[in-house]
Design a binder for these strands. Sequence first.
DNA 1: GTAGGGCCTCACGTCGCGTGAGGGTCAACC
DNA 2: GGTTGACCCTCACGCGACGTGAGGCCCTAC
Lengths: 259, 259
Amino acid sequence: MALTVSQVARLAKISIRALHHYDELGLLCPSDRSEAGYRLYSQADLQKLQQVLFFKELGFPLEDIRRILGDPTFDLRTALRMQRQLLTERAARLDALVHAVDSALDALEKGTHVDKDAMFEAFGDFDPSKYEEEAKQRWGNTEAYKESARRTARYKKEDWKRIKEEGDALFQALADLLAAGTSAASAEALDLAEAHRRYLGKWFYACPPAMHRGLGELYVADSRFMENIDKVRPGLSLFLRDAFAANAERQGAAAAPRG
Amino acid sequence: MALTVSQVARLAKISIRALHHYDELGLLCPSDRSEAGYRLYSQADLQKLQQVLFFKELGFPLEDIRRILGDPTFDLRTALRMQRQLLTERAARLDALVHAVDSALDALEKGTHVDKDAMFEAFGDFDPSKYEEEAKQRWGNTEAYKESARRTARYKKEDWKRIKEEGDALFQALADLLAAGTSAASAEALDLAEAHRRYLGKWFYACPPAMHRGLGELYVADSRFMENIDKVRPGLSLFLRDAFAANAERQGAAAAPRG
DNA sequence: GTAGGGCCTCACGTCGCGTGAGGGTCAACC
DNA sequence: GGTTGACCCTCACGCGACGTGAGGCCCTAC
């Protein structure tokens, strides 16, 4: 049942060169070779390849994948959570970009003869440099991410449980405010929002106020977030969004970057 | 008012090396140099940098950006439309990945002690190789994209108008079917769906049936698409989704890849 | 005059492969 | 049994968008 490179490549729809590359890196070495030196992949190799491709789809670098699949003590859960966070953030960013493109197209539709300079002046609501300013903070700071990854990778089940409880407690406290009819702009709500922001920064990675505001928007924009949060108390996601935004305002954050 | 590299870098939140790089490529050469050879950026340079960063955010390669900003006859509209398409597709892919991560996390939550092998067996609905199979067709075929880019880059206003009219006519014909109460699974609807698929392939890039089905899903999932389409006739986006899906079925497409 | 920060130009490193070059292997057909 | 053509191997360089020094000039301030 051993498969050759081309067969595996066809199955997985990747290039032969990629398989060679994975072999070189020690990421996926075929478990056998023919007498002529041909790579022969077993079923187990195929399974491992699936795992490799899965993590690759998620954006992990190959070297990390090698460690993930090699180290049995790797904290998969934390890694996946962080990856999920990154993915949703990337999705939000893409969304903003699509809006920006729409604005550009609208501008083109309106002006019959639009030159590029004029077009870019119409981009009042999408100033790339302004966007970039916190985009780097928000998505690009891989150093902070790596730092956080190093930290959280050391957390074990016990730690994670504590972290989760801390987060749940914050959500519960905010839900209680909502239940009591307290405004999302009240001092208590803002303090809890700020506590939540610091909580994220403490256990995951730096979350500046503008990003926290964006997170709140995500809570209501993404139905999966919203449903999960509203399980704690109906309407909590909206309450969180408003509280996070108000707190960001209080912390003197710049306007959220949206195209 | 001339700014040095470090000042520009701070403003735009990019690296000094990046500015050097843009200079080397002829993408953004500072309009002046000090006597000592220091790069001095004018306000106009900053504006151009904004344009560069904008297109960079949209994922254009630097060489293309140089051409875009240099060639006054460049078809900006077509480029933006294609980029929009790419962005929404990337967004859909990210969405699928987030679902996949959620599945992984769910699996982890349920089994108290899940080892990696077992986890990946639980990924019945997200078979990376199966996903990859058409992912390559769907997103990865940059050669086809480039080919299409080469073609469409030559279209001028006249051509584009014709292309738009052709697309509008197809949508209108489908809207008429909807108005007449014809089923989305009817032969007429399927034929029009197929015509639309070929239309996309003809003017933009290869759109296999499974991708077309995905596009239909996008039409209802993305509110901007949906609203625009429903402007032609309320409910048209849903009708299109069903017609595209039925046509994909008829064309013998594999199930749409969703995590 | 010297310490420090900022600037310059090479020029090599990175990541995930693509893309040959140059050559051995294997099954099939003449 | 010789040849064809598909398949496989190992180098090894190329790409794109920079990162990261190295080695050295410039400029202000103490």
